[in-house]
Amino acid sequence: MDDLNDKPEAQPKRTPERELIELYPNCFNLKKPRPLKVGIRQDLLAAGHASKLVNSVMYGYCQRIAYLKAMRIGTARIDLQGQPAGEVTEAAAIIARDELALLRPVKSSKPKPPHRNPHPF
């Protein structure tokens, strides 16, 4: 580094979860997730990945707001290689919508009191 202001680029923290996600770049996309194949957890286990790690990755990935928004009826699901593997059903889309509603802040249904001007004149 020639200049005092030069800093090495920040690298994402290396975790087992991130490493597993990076093994399947055509499947896991943190910026623009696509619905995953039904049974993809079993595919990851069959590939030799530890159950605890797979569960952690699947939960963290599939509970993200962007993933839940991607779960729309008829949207293609993808396998580990990013190939089409089924479609999102109406039931799955409803579950995702309900999960998304739980993650979003709920606006109070209680009406706000009218604003009172402390200086009426």
Rank of each mutant, 00 (worst) to 15 (best):
V106K: 07
L36K: 01
D79Y: 09
R104N: 14
A96E: 03
D98T: 14
C27N: 02
K52P: 00
G60A: 10
E22P: 03
N26M: 09
E17P: 01
H115M: 12
T75S: 07
E99F: 11
V57A: 02
V106T: 10
K52G: 06
N55I: 08
E19H: 03
K31A: 11
P120E: 04
A66V: 09
N5R: 15
E87R: 14
L102N: 14
S56A: 15
C62Y: 01
N5D: 15
R104C: 10
P114D: 10
E99H: 14
V88M: 06
V106H: 07
T75D: 02
A66S: 11
V38L: 08
A76W: 08
L30W: 06
P114L: 07
E90K: 13
V38M: 04
P114M: 03
I21Y: 00
P118R: 01
G60Y: 06
K52N: 10
A47V: 03
P35Q: 06
A50S: 11
S108T: 13
L102D: 12
A91R: 12
K13H: 13
Y67K: 02
V54F: 06
T15I: 01
Q11P: 02
S108Y: 00
Y24C: 03
L4C: 08
R14C: 07
P35M: 07
L36R: 00
T15W: 05
D98G: 02
R77V: 01
K7P: 00
L23Q: 10
E99Q: 14
L44V: 00
K112R: 12
H119I: 11
P33A: 07
A47S: 09
R97L: 10
R116E: 13
N29M: 05
E19Y: 03
A46C: 04
R72M: 08
P113L: 04
Y59A: 10
V88K: 02
A96T: 01
I94N: 06
V57C: 08
M58C: 08
I40A: 00
T75A: 14
